[in-house]
Design a protein around this nucleic acid. Sequence first.
DNA 1: ACCTGAACACCGTTCAAGT
DNA 2: ACCTGAACACCGTTCAAGT
Lengths: 265, 265
Amino acid sequence: MATRTRRSQRRTEALSRERIVEAAVELLDTAGESGLTFRALTERLATGPGAIYWHVANKDELLGAATDAVIAAAVTVGTVAGTVGAATGTVGAATEGSRPATGEPGTTEPPASPQDDIRGVALGLFDAIARHPWLATQLAAQLSRSPWGTVTPRIFESIGRRVRALDVPESSWFTVTSALVHYILGAAGQNAANNASARSLPPGVDRDRFIDTVSRAWGELDPDEYPFTRAVADQMRGHDDREQFLAGVDLVLAGITATHHHGQE
Amino acid sequence: MATRTRRSQRRTEALSRERIVEAAVELLDTAGESGLTFRALTERLATGPGAIYWHVANKDELLGAATDAVIAAAVTVGTVAGTVGAATGTVGAATEGSRPATGEPGTTEPPASPQDDIRGVALGLFDAIARHPWLATQLAAQLSRSPWGTVTPRIFESIGRRVRALDVPESSWFTVTSALVHYILGAAGQNAANNASARSLPPGVDRDRFIDTVSRAWGELDPDEYPFTRAVADQMRGHDDREQFLAGVDLVLAGITATHHHGQE
DNA sequence: ACCTGAACACCGTTCAAGT
DNA sequence: ACCTGAACACCGTTCAAGT
């Protein structure tokens, strides 16, 4: 009933699309996908549903805008650390994807290779999706609703620029970039899904214990139907999520190099 | 109002979980994700909501069961054409993934390479997701709800067995299989998303015109923010979806071979 | 131009009651 | 054991009315 102590917080700023999207992201982060309702939103923003509908067409558009804002921030910061440039969606732009990661262009280090650059962007997306687990579902939904929207091109552009820096023939740019983006979104999405369900477990069960649980469950599958899965069940234990993710990126990068050098049309 | 001519069809069979899941899949296929409601379901099954709740815990479980049934069928048929074996979820098992595809183990052909085998399974999943576009969203949702569920192991097992047939060291099985599965689900999901929104366009606009539209939209993006995406906009035109998908699979396969042969730990 | 808030249609879920 | 169907709580969305 009583929502913390935040109720009717005497609106200071005027309502705006930006403020609404910001509140939506907060709600999604703290209360999950099912926590984003117009009633929760109106309470948090101390207004009525009609006011929100003045700035936003409907819930789908709101979810799309929230997704776009977070992705835009994650992808923009990837470019040059510190130089945020033109972050159109400003929600949390300063902190998104800040964790520097393996081969990120650092402070005094020599310019990174295109490969390291790609790893950096990939990790930025991976971390953003890990921080906002609802992105896993929403990215899929958003792409269904409008692939001509802004979120796909944003990701595509960010990866594609680095692909251009590899020695891949121009005729393969689209195929290669698509493959990278698909792997990144697939892997990051699955990871976020894992995190989301780890979070919903009985409290006191932390991340490691969760992987342990899944690993054990896989180890106890029917030996006739799932021999392989049983066999690798304990390989998933102790593996760091981000390392695992990067290993996959490297696999695709290796494939790109191999395919290009051998020149098999 | 009037639902075709199927209303109150004098239930012949007794209600069962299987029949409910089957009806759910049909509803999802014909009416989309928003078309699956308990009211539509009760009408189609000529029963009340209470009856459904006797067999199924809630909507999430129903969606999970529908997803699992379709994935199980798609993945099982991939093994040996015609020998369906133990198809636990029988929804449309006969027709799922039947289109033989490039390197599928055919009638009189020599046994396919592990690579061709992997391409076959990947295409089976790709086609299943293309036929049931709601899978794109539901796979993501399902993995969030219960990664210890049966759908992940099913896909993992199916790909993993073929990975074992490649000359990859056992210590890399998990990483390599994960990478393949992530790419497949990511790419198939995005493709299904495209199909889904192509379908929701004003009628008379077919698949080709849709890609044309997106391609043109990408070609008209801001040159300052999206130079790369603009440049490859017309590469996406005329590209066959399945070929594009297989090219990505080949890229990952090439990466696996390259990484293994060079032995870079 | 921007906001209010009651009202509407619809949805997932429950449950006392039937067979 | 299995099914019925009215009822409940809640949700997205609308709209006449206000400023």
